[in-house]
Design a protein around this nucleic acid. Structure first.
Lengths: 259, 259
DNA sequence: GAGGTGTTTATTGTTTACATTCCACATGGC
DNA sequence: GCCATGTGGAATGTAAACAATAAACACCTC
């Protein structure tokens, strides 16, 4: 049973790994809590921690070679990010998004991304324009070569850079947080290969509007693109492709109407 | 040197206050960390903790009658809310918003609030309509009576209920978080008395659009209302009324361009 | 006297230990 | 046979001790 994470037989102190990680942490000047948070996010992304799973503090602390304190800190941080739910005296659980929340998040993201595009259309600078164009071309190449992973990476970057370049930081943070929430908790299943080409032609139209400075048109393209993604998600779950995991969570007391 | 918060001479254990708080906590089934978070927020709101102030863990723990653990937890939670900044090995500091961030937050909130209004216009139910109308009337009364505090309370509730009723939870959470960030860190100075009447007439127009089901018109009114608030903020700081506190924070190394 | 360096002290980061709560299972009563 | 109750174990909530970092002060050198 081998894993990529530094899970190791208990009792043995893994000197090599530990000092390497510590050196890296010191170099990056981040606390153990942050490091643990990153590790947990990767566990969620890789599926090691599935939706609904409980984050056992002792177990995780032992696996990561730290004490429970940093693990707790990371769990609380993930709670506010929306990746886990903390229940008093019961612990932290990886959230499972119900369809409703996914759709609502798409809805909000559409508005935010649309606004970012509109802002960017008014302020975009040449180097940024060049970068976005390069990303779109990279996606075209990925489509032609059928490289799904490459397309996925470039696709994420395209959206990320648009909200980055638009200049509104709070908007960027919110959009990235919620996009990441969707990515991490839905296991990427939405990006079916068949839609890559259509998706990137939407990117091209959006970028053209941004480059020509037509803010409102950019807004509409960006909104439409996000809503198209929403529609792709809907058809995906209709075909049973993706995880429409509902309510695996230990509920926070679903309130009935009885006394 | 007297303060409203439960700051007390060191060494004395304030039994009465502590047990009362604990009982309340047990009744509400919330962890100490949550309670401390609420206490810190109130300290920030009341001005006991001013922007730029450091959150001394030991001191706060002693004041609140808990250990440093819950205080740390609360500080990290507040960090993600955007109320404090945590610097490695130096502690948590109450954030001070620079003008740029306030304006950008207004900008984002305008879009979100506009979308909430548009959504609500399509789904509003009679009891919700009645409540919103009642709130607007309450604000009118407050204007007539010159009751600033009452107007402020009703005003906050009006916006809150619109995003609540619109049905999009992620949007609601984001909007409320960022609105609260502005309220807590700017000490309410934006709501100059002279603008109450104008503000509430905007509310009336917005509500009319919502009630008549005109989504796009509601969106525009809501957006315009938020941007009007933004403009009021700008004129306020131009007149030196409000706290345009810039960069009191110990900076996270403002990067210069030299080697 | 100015600048740099070593030391001190206060505070945070982290770990360890204790108290409390919840869940599961077994036991007994109906 | 089923439900209620009690008990045991495991995990979380909290507190207190330990380690490491950073700011402040004094000192020494030039």
């Amino acid at each position: 049973m081998q894993r990529r994470q530094s899970i190791r037989p208990e009792g043995l102190s893994p000197v090599a790994d530990t000092v390497a990680e510590l050196r890296q942490r010191l170099a990056r000047r981040e606390s153990l809590g942050r490091s643990v948070q990153a590790a947990l996010e990767q566990m969620i992304e890789s599926g090691t921690l599935e939706p609904g799973a409980r984050l056992n503090e002792m177990e995780l602390a032992a696996q990561l070679g730290v004490s429970r304190g940093p693990v707790r800190e990371a769990a609380r941080a993930l709670e506010r990010t929306g990746l886990v739910t903390v229940i008093l005296n019961r612990g932290a659980f990886v959230r499972s998004l119900d369809i409703e929340e996914v759709l609502q998040t798409y809805d909000m993201n559409a508005v935010l991304f649309g606004h970012a595009a509109a802002l960017l259309a008014r302020v975009i600078a040449p180097p940024q324009a060049a970068e976005l164009q390069a990303i779109v071309e990279r996606m075209d190449e990925a489509v032609a070569a059928g490289e799904l992973e490459a397309f996925f990476t470039a696709n994420v970057l395209f959206h990320r850079q648009i909200v980055e370049f638009c200049g509104n930081r709070p908007l960027r943070d919110v959009y990235l947080d919620h996009t990441r929430k969707l990515l991490l908790l839905r296991r990427r299943s939405f990006d079916a290969a068949g839609n890559m080409r259509a998706s990137n032609s939407e990117h091209r139209r959006l970028l053209a509007a941004i480059l020509s400075g037509r803010a409102e048109q950019a807004r509409q393209h960006a909104e439409a693109h996000t809503r198209a993604g929403r529609a792709r998600y809907l058809t995906a779950i209709a075909h049973g492709n993706a995880a429409a995991d509902e309510h695996i969570m230990p509920e926070g007391r679903t309130s009935h109407a009885d006394g």
